[in-house]
């Protein structure tokens, strides 16, 4: 067994995110759906965190709040002292643009742009980006950079999505079921890319998954149920992706 990242980040550092009493309710009255109920959480720089939970447990809602796609109904959500719970649309757009990289289950590439252009789209507007070619090299897609999404396999498309997410050197990488639409082999290449980014760039990475096996590659595993954080487990050692037992 190979142990990854001996210098794994620790809670000795100041947290990037401070989440207190985070609550998200959709609708009201009897029809109200409590997606998150009083979640308290700190997330640290360089951490690789896996969020586990059944469907409807609140994982995606938490991720969307962390990513500035949604705002909480109540509670505090601070990123480096920036109150995201109070930010307006413009502020959230700036936050997403400067801070967060997203990876989605269905890749969400722009079909009319090549792999390189999909990445360049972001580097054009980012403050201190890496070159699109470097980003694609990090996910091992240098040879496929001039291909359009339709000409790439699912795993390749997802790796382009990862390259696009990390090209702006984000401090936070949020992955929503990144392997949900992939087979095991392809899933491994994608997770390997995510782990490399986390290790080499020190990006706080949060992965949502149904697949409990993935938890072993993380520093910390958070479990949500009915909108509440019900479990938190620190992995003494992170496993390399190739060693995960699917």
């Amino acid at each position: 067994m190979c142990v990854v990242a001996a210098d794994s980040p620790s809670s000795a550092q100041d947290p990037l995110f401070v989440v207190r009493g985070l609550t998200k309710t959709y609708g009201d009255g009897e029809a109200a759906v409590h997606a998150l109920v009083g979640v308290d959480l700190d997330l640290f720089p360089g951490e690789l965190v896996v969020l586990l939970g059944a469907s409807g447990s609140g994982k995606s809602t938490l991720l969307n709040n962390l990513g500035g796609l949604d705002t909480p109904t109540s509670g505090k959500l601070n990123y480096r002292g920036w109150s995201l719970d109070e930010a307006d649309q413009e502020g959230l757009t700036r936050y997403r643009r400067d801070v967060v990289g997203f990876v989605f289950q269905f890749y969400n590439l722009i079909p009319s742009l090549t792999a390189r252009e999909n990445v360049a789209l972001i580097t054009e507007v980012a403050a201190d980006p890496m070159s699109p070619d470097d980003a694609l090299a990090l996910v091992g897609l240098t040879d496929r950079r001039n291909h359009f999404p339709a000409q790439l396999s699912g795993g390749e498309q997802q790796r382009v999505a990862i390259a696009r997410a990390i090209a702006k050197r984000p401090e936070v990488l949020l992955c929503d079921e990144p392997t949900g639409a992939l087979d095991i082999h392809t899933g491994i290449t994608v997770l390997d890319a995510v782990q490399r980014i986390n290790r080499e760039l020190g990006t706080l990475t949060v992965i949502i998954t149904h697949n409990a096996a993935i938890a072993a590659m993380s520093d910390r595993v958070l479990t949500l149920s009915d909108g509440r954080l019900v479990g938190q487990k620190k992995n003494p050692q992170r496993l390399a992706v190739q060693e995960l037992q699917w």
Binding site: G67, L69, Q89, E90, T93, R94, Y95, R96, R97, D98, V100, F102, F104, N108, L109, I110, P111, S112, L121, I122, V125, R164
Partner: peptide, 16 residues
């Protein structure tokens, strides 16, 4: 719609 929503999520402004 989906493509444009992706751009918004990636941090592009409404105007962009």
């Amino acid at each position: 719609q989906r493509e444009l929503a992706t751009l918004r999520v990636l941090g592009f402004s409404q105007a962009e």
